[in-house]
């Protein structure tokens, strides 16, 4: 499935649900939360997370409580606002697309 352009929305949504999480947990949440539909190449997630962090939408810290150091990400206030804006855009897009590809009355009768 082509995910270009939707990855940011997916990552921000996952982080809102998870609260704070490291990259591996985010990928697992994306895969499991979409019933396996979004089983994206795992290596694409980290560049996207770094980009979101530089854009100020997420921040991160090292978590040293476990056996290995882990970078843990969480949404910022700007990230929460951006997520709301992207959700509105997505719903408008999905609404328009549904209307466009839905069968017309004549097709339905044929």
């Amino acid at each position: 499935m082509e995910l270009r352009g939707h990855l940011d929305l997916m990552l921000l949504s996952s982080l809102r649900q998870l609260g704070s999480a490291h990259g591996y947990a985010i990928i697992v949440a994306l895969r499991d939360g979409s019933d396996g539909v979004f089983d994206l190449p795992e290596g694409t997630v980290y560049p996207a997370l770094h980009r979101l962090e530089r854009a100020g939408l997420v921040n991160s810290d090292w978590d040293t409580s476990g056996a290995r150091r882990r970078r843990v990400y969480r949404l910022t206030t700007d990230g929460t606002a951006a997520l709301a804006a992207k959700q509105r855009e997505w719903h408008a897009f999905a609404h328009g697309m549904r209307a466009l590809i839905a069968p017309t009355a004549s097709e339905g009768l044929a």
Binding site: E42, R51, A55
Partner: peptide
Amino acid sequence: ASFGDVRMVARRLRAGHRQA
């Protein structure tokens, strides 16, 4: 294999760094 081609990952990380 699940993580993806190493050249692609490195390229994306570098490109993201430049774009940012």
